[in-house]
Design a protein around this nucleic acid. Structure first.
Lengths: 110, 110
DNA sequence: TTGTTTAATTGCAATATTACAATTAATAAT
DNA sequence: ATTATTAATTGTAATATTGCAATTAAACAA
C-alpha cells in the first residue's frame, strides 16, 4: 500500500521512526550540518552550499521545521534558520535510548 | 523524480541517511528492539509479536540484513535472526558523530 | 508605486516504499 | 515419497517521497 501501519506500534517506536526519517535524506543531513557549522543560515545560502533548487531546499527545511529540529526567524526578505537546541536535545535522548541498547554478552545465535 | 541526488553529497552524509532510513519505519524499529530483547528470534516469532504479514516482516528483515545490522542463521526450516554487534557499533559511531554535534554557546539567531 | 530580492507554495512527473496474497523453496517429519 | 513447516520471492496496488519549473507572497528599495 505504501502507508505504514503506525497504529500497531508504540508511540516510542513511531517517534523514533519519525525522527529517523528526518535524517533519511542526505540533503537534510547536509542542511543540519551546515546549520551546526554556521550556527545560523539563510535559505539562499543553503541553496548555494548544497546545490539543490530553492524549492527543494525550502521543502526539506519545512519538514525539519515541522519536526521542530529547526526554527526560522524572518529578517526582512530573508529567513534565518538555526537548530532548535532544546528539541535537538529531546531528539537525541529518544534516539539515544534506541541506539545505545546493549545485548547480554553471553548468548549469540548467529 | 523521487530519487535522491546522492552524488552531490559526501559519503558520510549518504551513509548517515542510509542508516537513518533503516530506522525510518516503526516495524524495523520494533524488529530491532525485539532482537535486542530476545538476543535472537525467528521470523515467525517476529510476525506474531509485531502483527504484520510474514512477507512484510521478511522484507523488512532483508533490508536490515542488507545493511548488515542483522544477521540470520538457518536452523532447519527456521531462520534465527540476531543483531550484528560489530556493525551495530559501527553504525552507532557514524550516527553518534552526527547527533552529538554541538553548537557554540554564544550566538543564536532565532 | 514600481521594481527587486528572498522564500514559500503549487503542480506535476518520476521513483521509492509499504503491504500482502499467492507462490515457491528448502528442510524436517512421517 | 508425501506431507508439514518455515521463510523467501514474486507480483501488484496504494501511498509517499523527491525534485524542480512556474508562480505567488512578503518585505525592502528606488
Amino acid at each position: 500500500m505504501g502507508l505504514a501501519k503506525t497504529e500497531i506500534f508504540t508511540d516510542q517506536q513511531n517517534q523514533i521512526a519519525i525522527f529517523a526519517k528526518a535524517f533519511g535524506h542526505p540533503a537534510r543531513v547536509a542542511i543540519l550540518q551546515q546549520l551546526f557549522k554556521m550556527d545560523s543560515c539563510y535559505c539562499g545560502s543553503l541553496v548555494d552550499e548544497i546545490g539543490l533548487a530553492q524549492p527543494t531546499i525550502s521543502q526539506h527545511l519545512k519538514e525539519l521545521r515541522n519536526l521542530g529540529l529547526v526554527k526560522g526567524n524572518v529578517e526582512g526578505t530573508s529567513v534565518c534558520y538555526c537548530i532548535d537546541k532544546d528539541n535537538w536535545t529531546v531528539m537525541k535522548a529518544v534516539m539515544g535510548d534506541f541506539l545505545d541498547q546493549d545485548l547480554p554478552e553471553n548468548e549469540d545465535c548467529c
